[in-house]
C-alpha cells in the first residue's frame, strides 16, 4: 500500500489557488464588484417598495400561477415575516436568491443546451456537475472567501456552484427527451438549428427545465443559511447569529421565514412547468 509516498494534494491545491489569486486577482475584483452591485441594487429595489405592495404582488402572482390557497398563504406568511421584524433580512435573502437564480439560468441554460446537442460537451460537463454536487459546500466556501473576500459575493458564488447543476442537467434531459419523431419533423421541414431549438426543443423541454429551475431556487434558499457563515446577511445571518447566542426562539422565527419564502417560490415556479399542456 505504501509504494507511493503521500501525495501533497493539499499543497498543490494551495499553490494553485495562490497562483490564481495572483494572476487573476484583478479580474476577480471586477467580477466581485459587478456581483455586489447587482445584489445590492436588487436589494435596494425590494426595500424601496412598501411591504404592503410587495405582499400584494406576491399574492397576485401566486393566485395567477398557482391557486387561491397559495395566494392566501403568501399574504399570511409574508405578513408574519413583517410582523416579527424580519422584513429587511428577508428582502436581503430574496435579493440574493433572485440574483443567484438569474445567474444560474443565464449560465446554466446555454450549458444545458450545449450538453444536449454535443456529445463531447456532455462528456466534459457531466463529471464537473458530479463534482459540484458532491463536494461539501464548506470546502468551496473557503476559497470563495480568499478570492472574493467576506460578504454577499462569495455567498453568490457558492450558491452558483451549489444550485446550478440541476438547471444544466434538467435542460439537457428535457431536450434529449423530445420525441424522435418531433425532431424528425423539424428536420424534414428544413428547420435551422435555432428554429429547431426555439420552436420545437425548448417548448417541449419546458416542464423539465422548469423543474430544474424550481430545484435551483430551493437549493439557493438552503445555501443562504450556510453562506451566512462567510458574512452574507439576510435570514441566514439571523439564524447564524441566534445559533451563536443560543437564542432558539429568534432562530426559529428566521427559519420559519425561510420556509415561508421557499413554499411561495416553489408553488409559483412549479406551476410554470404545468400550465398549457
Amino acid at each position: 500500500m505504501d509504494l507511493i509516498p503521500r501525495m501533497p494534494l493539499n499543497h498543490w491545491t494551495d499553490i494553485g489557488i495562490n497562483y490564481l489569486q495572483l494572476r487573476f486577482g484583478n479580474s476577480f475584483d471586477s467580477l466581485s464588484d459587478f456581483l455586489e452591485n447587482m445584489i445590492i441594487s436588487l436589494q435596494d429595489y425590494l426595500l424601496l417598495m412598501p411591504p404592503a405592495l410587495l405582499i400584494t404582488l406576491f399574492a397576485l402572482l401566486s393566485w395567477k400561477f398557482a391557486n387561491k390557497k397559495v395566494a392566501l398563504f403568501s399574504i399570511i406568511g409574508m405578513y408574519l415575516i413583517y410582523n416579527v421584524g424580519l422584513w429587511d433580512a428577508t428582502m436581503q435573502t430574496l435579493a440574493m436568491v433572485i440574483g443567484s437564480v438569474a445567474l444560474c439560468i443565464i449560465i446554466g441554460l446555454p450549458l444545458g443546451i450545449l450538453s444536449a446537442k454535443r456529445e463531447a460537451a456532455h462528456r466534459i460537463i457531466s463529471p464537473i456537475l458530479d463534482f459540484m454536487q458532491t463536494l461539501p459546500a464548506f470546502v468551496y466556501l473557503l476559497p470563495a472567501v480568499t478570492f472574493f473576500g467576506l460578504g454577499v459575493v462569495p455567498a453568490v458564488i457558492a450558491t452558483l456552484i451549489f444550485a446550478m447543476p440541476p438547471v444544466i442537467r434538467l435542460t439537457d434531459l428535457g431536450i434529449r427527451q423530445v420525441p424522435e419523431e418531433l425532431v424528425e419533423l423539424g428536420k424534414s421541414f428544413g428547420s435551422t438549428f435555432y428554429q429547431m431549438l426555439f420552436k420545437i426543443e425548448l417548448p417541449l423541454a419546458r416542464p423539465t427545465i422548469m423543474a430544474g429551475i424550481n430545484q435551483c431556487i430551493m437549493l439557493s434558499l438552503s445555501m443562504v443559511v450556510i453562506s451566512a457563515m462567510i458574512g452574507a446577511k439576510g435570514l441566514g445571518g439571523e439564524v447564524w447569529r441566534s445559533i451563536q447566542r443560543m437564542e432558539i426562539g429568534t432562530g426559529f422565527e428566521a427559519g420559519l421565514a425561510i420556509v415561508v419564502i421557499a413554499i411561495i417560490l416553489d408553488r409559483i415556479t412549479q406551476s410554470f412547468g404545468k400550465s398549457n399542456e
Binding site: E181, L182, E184, L185, S188, F189, G190, T192, K199, P203
Partner: peptide
C-alpha cells in the same frame, strides 16, 4: 441545399402524427 429541398420540394407525414402539443 438540403434544407432548401426539404422546405420546398418535399414534406413528410408521420406514423404517430408528430404534432407539436404546444
Amino acid at each position: 441545399e438540403l434544407r432548401t429541398i426539404r422546405r420546398e420540394k418535399m414534406a413528410m407525414v408521420f406514423q404517430r402524427f408528430a404534432l407539436l402539443p404546444h
